[in-house]
Design a protein around this nucleic acid. Sequence first.
RNA 1: GGUCUCAUAGCUCAGCUGGAUAGAGCAUCUCACUUCUAAUGAGACGGUCUCAGGUUCGAAUCCUGAUGAGAUCACCA
Length: 629
Amino acid sequence: MSNITDTLKENVAKAVKSLYGADFEAKKVNISPTRKEIEGDYTILVFPFAKIARKRPEAIGEEIGQYLVENMDAVAKFNIIKGFLNLSVSDNLWASMLNNMLGQADFGTHPKNGEKVMVEYSSPNTNKPLHLGHVRNILLGWSCAKILDAAGYDVTRVQIINDRGVHICKSMLTWELYGNGETPESSGMKGDHMIGKYYVLFDKKFQEEYKVWQKSKAALARYKTWINSEAGQKAVKEQGTNELEAHFYKSVYKNKYFNDESEIGQKVNEMLIKWENNDPEIRALWQKMNGWVYAGFNETYKNLGVSFDDIYYESNTYLLGKDTIEAGLEKGLFFKKEDNSVWIDLTDAKLDEKLVLRSNGTSVYMTQDMGTAQQRYKDHGVSKMIYVVGNEQEYHFKVLFEILKRLEEPYAAGLHHLSYGMVELPDGKMKSREGKVVDADDLMVEVQAAVKAVSEESGGLVGLPEETITDIHRQIGLGALKFFILKINPRRGMIFNPAESVEIQGQTGPFIQYATMRTKAVERKAKDIDLSFSDNYTDVQDIEQELLLMLQKFPKIIAKAANTYSPAEVANYSYEVAKIFNRFYNLCPILKADNPLEVKAFRLKLCQLTGKVLVKGLDLLGMESPDYM
RNA sequence: GGUCUCAUAGCUCAGCUGGAUAGAGCAUCUCACUUCUAAUGAGACGGUCUCAGGUUCGAAUCCUGAUGAGAUCACCA
């Protein structure tokens, strides 16, 4: 039996054909659950047929309703209010609907479609421990991968690690200068946090040096040269001389100072050159320190419950893409300027002229990304690539995708940037320089502690082994955090309120986990109930019908979430299911002693199905379902 | 300035292939645990869907414009 709504749509289309002799696409029939206060289970909108039938909506409803009752066993009766045709489903249909859904081993998931898709997420920089922004990224990526898998795709999860460049050398240098051989073991710090410390230290040391220099005669000379230059005069015009010197040091000259004059800056640049020339000592240091960082990252990933199938490193990919430049030049897609730099003109796509190769022949980010995409296609043969990256890179990806499209890459049509908004704190943006960041590791510890406090108060876990209790606290804490982040449409920027993220009441992860736990608890208690009696149950309550109709949507929700790359779709659906189930749980006793057998059997089955859907829904969000709470 | 997002209840968010009286949660105020675990349920309160036009039988939803917020427009990554 296919889905009842689909069957209804097909029959409505048939009705239109037979009554009015016109073709109407079954898919376009507008059908929705009937509003609670009106009699009926499904409502069909008849306005769209008005033009075809050339009759009043009420008359059309009457005719179609009549047709459906006569031609479908499932439709018992109907009524019409304005242009709305409300159908009531036959009583015996509910049990068969339930059996049908419960009979599917993996209800909700779609058969494999043979398509391969890659999801890239996390993509950290080895200098900074993962923070709240990464957490949103990682959870989105992980959940999307799960959803795509459930929707029938063959998914490869990857991350690209930014492990090269000037910034990496900064932490290496300060560790060499001031580290005294410190290791994660010797300091007891997580590797990524330890490296992060040296990265911050570099900035501090540089600022100190820069500040001293600003008082020198040389500094004053640089400032005077600038102020008399064209750019300097322009600045004077725009903002006056007030604070101009500070502005000069802060914004105008800083990079130049770093590259040309700074002692510590020189050392970093020397180190980078050595790294690029494969200096064995530098490379060994680099590998050692990266190893510490990766160990730290892996711990965080493990705690978050996520993993990857393949990892790309920029140190391997940064030279890729140059052959593509050649190919593009031959095709006439790219062009060279006099200084030998290579460009592409995308002004006709409302994008600008874009540099793809520097005048000195070295790559830019775009070059590298072009090459990496091709490499991934070679490695994994994927037809779709999903990049989970913040919305600040929207422009970059638009350009990248446009270039790959014009290069006629076979996967070009399947490229998607899953762009998500910035995570802000209630008092504004996170700023790493001011230490105003929410660290991923700290965050996970905090949510678990908060859950522990509530749990001990409610006392639901008393009597279980200590280890089990701790693990349940972990599951709930992470559940609260993950749901809090994933329920929001990725597109939107979000305000992360730490207090709200550990809420366990209302629209939260633990609310859904609690409902799921209830389904499990009932099942544990239900013994020796002959489930086949459920078919005799015909007095199906409104709330039971509502729950069934909601559960029936599951496969479509997964498909929609996959098509829109939106875990929020699954999150909000799971919440709705949990809410209806809780209402059902309160209204309809399942195992009550004086319930007739068919009532127990039907409700128990409904409970089982709800449990299956909720467990799967939570799993798609990367959340676990505790057995006790 | 160009481009792209976003704007719905005091707060956090759903709803957007146009359809009935715009929905949840939080907060505030009631009520319900001798009951399959109350981390629950029932009820009350709360709205000019930013504004102004347009299309339509019908607009929170589509179009145009305005206002406000964010992002982006490097031979940076």
